[in-house]
Structures are given as C-alpha cells and as structure tokens.
C-alpha cells in the first residue's frame, strides 16, 4: 500500500517534470521564434519604408571628353538621405558609394571612355531605388 503511494508520487513528479520541461522548451522555442519573426518583420518594414522615403533624380549629366569623365548630378528630394551605391553606364557597373542628404544636389564622376552616341546612365541606391537618364555624348 505504502509502495503504491510512493510510486504515485514519483509518477506525479515525473508527469509534472515532463509538463514543465515540455512547456519550458516550447515556451523558449516560441520566444525565440517570435523574436526572430518580430526582428525580421521589423527590418523588412523598416527597409520598405525607407525605400519609399528615399527619392532622388539625376538633374543633369554630361561627358567631359577632355578628361574622360562622366559627370552625374543627383538631387535627393525624399524624406531621408539617398544612399547611392553604384552607377551603371549602358549596363557597365561603377561602384560609387555616397550619401546625398535631402534637398541636396551632389555631383558624382565616373572615369570612363565614351565615344559619340547616346548612353543610359542609371543611378542605384542601397535601398534598391534607381533613376535613369540618357546622356548624349
């Protein structure tokens, strides 16, 4: 009779332990899952918002044949700074990392040899925005 009582206690302890263990595990897992999800979601929304707030144009671009440089003027008119990372000239990639603050016009230059013709100049930002302009050389 007494043994039966002990085993019941043990059994109860085991059940409680299992319940706590599983519960803790599940809870910890869910905390991590939620935290990851929240972080991921927050980052994505933040990036999307920033992408929408970033606006810029190429105001003017010209090619200086004397020193073989392409000059590109970028105007940032968004709510946040434009983070320019690259310029493409007819698809040819040039890394140009610069920040253009709101209401600022900044000049970028690209060393490139161009012959006469029409070229597509594309400025891309870190946030995935871009602006294209054709330049007559």
């Amino acid at each position: 009779m007494n043994k039966r009582g002990v085993s019941e206690i043990i059994a109860s302890l085991i059940i409680i332990t299992i319940a706590i263990g599983l519960g803790s595990g599940l809870y910890i897992y869910s905390l991590k899952f939620f935290a990851d999800f929240r972080s991921s979601m927050g980052t994505k929304l933040s990036l999307a918002t920033a992408k929408a707030d970033e606006r810029f144009i190429i105001t003017y671009s010209y090619y200086n044949s004397t020193d073989s440089t392409l000059h590109v003027f970028i105007y940032s008119y968004g709510d946040i700074e434009a983070r320019i990372v690259a310029i493409y000239v007819n698809g040819q990639h040039f890394e140009k990392e610069t920040i253009v603050n709101p209401d600022e016009i900044k000049e970028l230059t690209v060393s490139i040899s161009l012959s006469s013709g029409t070229y597509k100049v594309k400025v891309v930002s870190e946030r995935g925005n871009s602006y294209e302009k054709y330049v007559e050389v």
Binding site: G5, E8, I9, A11, S12, L13, I15, I16, I18, A19, I20, L22, G23, S24, L26, Y27, S30
Partner: peptide
C-alpha cells in the same frame, strides 16, 4: 489514485500556464 489525479491536475495547470504564456 487521488494523488495521480491531483498531479495530473497540476501538470495540466502547468501546461496551461505555459500555453497562456505562449
């Protein structure tokens, strides 16, 4: 028997608490 049932009840409460937390 009553003790087992009681411990099951506690386990249920514990599980319920975790479920609530989650």
């Amino acid at each position: 028997m009553r003790s087992t049932l009681r411990s099951r009840g506690i386990g249920t409460l514990v599980a319920a608490a975790f479920i609530f937390l989650i």
